[in-house]
Design a protein around this nucleic acid. Structure first.
Lengths: 211, 211
DNA sequence: CTATTCTATCGAACAACGTTCGATCAACGA
DNA sequence: TCGTTGATCGAACGTTGTTCGATAGAATAG
């Protein structure tokens, strides 16, 4: 059932309509409502289904350095979410129908137990990591512009156009953008995520060291 | 025009429909389409309108310590976005119709110019901060559950119920959750955000110091 | 064996939404 | 006076999520 959902969102988020799903399953529209109560719950369950895969992919990860282990897990989560823009909005929205997500949350926090931190610090650290991973993924793989969807331009062309717009800005009114526009034009999403994550984890390491 | 929009989303996001907005403005439905091309653009512009307020609120902020200045700006942005769950999804989605957002982006990066970093490091740092702020705000002020919307339960009651569910989990299968559930039950969103932001900024300070 | 409940399916119908479109009207310059 | 332009309006269209009663087989009870 949710297998068919996972297949459908590979063809874009707004393509997942109750009627399209019913057709794909060879059933009626109303039947789906026997299994889920609403579309929100459908997407909650679909998101949790994906997190089940992440959970399995993350299972063998181990590192003697707790922070390195968190980093490896976070990177795996990011790679998965970044490929599925719809996922970010339904991550951890209803833990009652998302058991896999709950397990993943615990999995991220487990290495932190080996760090010398207070319970509160640990809670804040894990929340910060998940927030950063999901937030950055949502930010980077944001709703693609119409001209990319209809195929009249590639994603690279779109980004190049933005870079050109930025270059045309006044250097005195926008000193920072003026300086980093070339970085923006040549940036790589994954590298950008890892750089931010490393900043966060460096701060965490500092905190764990000076307890 | 967008003033009316800013008023309407105070009454919830899905309440902003073209018909409701037209009624509020005392005009026709079609008239709105003379000013905006689609609902996406309407929300893009509404988001940018709010960012204009943020920009003004942030203007007088100055601190000799660049990182402290970034912290103050980020906190202001967070406070604004957290109060408006719909905002996160439309932050920096189309800079062509969001001049204020573009200015704000530059404003966040400007103190970083005083840090000893490479252009690439600066770009990554600002992206990390904005991603963290927006992502965490979206995560914390996520779509409220139905029972809170219809007033049959308060937000605190809802969180208490989740905490109870978490307490009922097996301590061996969920060691981390078991340890932090009390922190979750008594947590404060703002404190949680600031703790994560401070981790991120501590990492940044480390990087700037060891250049 | 029969009657009754439960599980599961189905699609017509409803209300609400974003969007399109042609009609309309005032203002203005030629 | 006429045609052009800026601006407004609401009826209409297609799609969406959701509700509902009808239906039929399986299981269970008497």
């Amino acid at each position: 059932m949710t297998e068919a959902v996972a297949l459908l969102d590979e063809a874009g988020e707004p393509a997942l309509t109750f009627r399209a799903l019913a057709d794909r399953l060879g059933g009626g529209v109303g039947s789906i409502y026997w299994y889920v109560a609403s579309k929100d719950e459908l997407l909650d369950r679909a998101a949790d289904h994906v997190m089940g895969d992440v959970l399995r992919a993350v299972d063998p990860i181990h590192d003697d350095d707790p922070i390195a282990e968190v980093r490896a897990i976070a990177t795996t989560v990011f790679d998965t979410v970044e490929r599925r823009p719809w996922l970010a909005a339904y991550f951890m929205t209803d833990t009652e129908v998302q058991p896999n997500t709950l397990q993943l949350y615990d999995r991220i926090g487990r290495p932190m137990l080996r760090l010398k931190l207070t319970a509160r610090q640990r809670f804040h650290a894990v929340s910060a990591v998940t927030g950063f991973v999901i937030g950055t993924a949502a930010d980077l793989s944001q709703r693609p512009p119409p001209e990319v969807v209809d195929g009249s331009a590639t994603r690279d062309q779109y980004l190049d156009r933005i870079a050109d717009d930025w270059r045309a800005l006044d250097a005195e009114a926008f000193p920072f953008i003026h300086q980093v526009v070339e970085e923006f034009a040549t940036h790589d999403d994954n590298e950008q995520f890892r750089a931010g994550l490393d900043l966060l984890l460096a701060g965490l390491r500092l905190q764990a060291g000076s307890s």
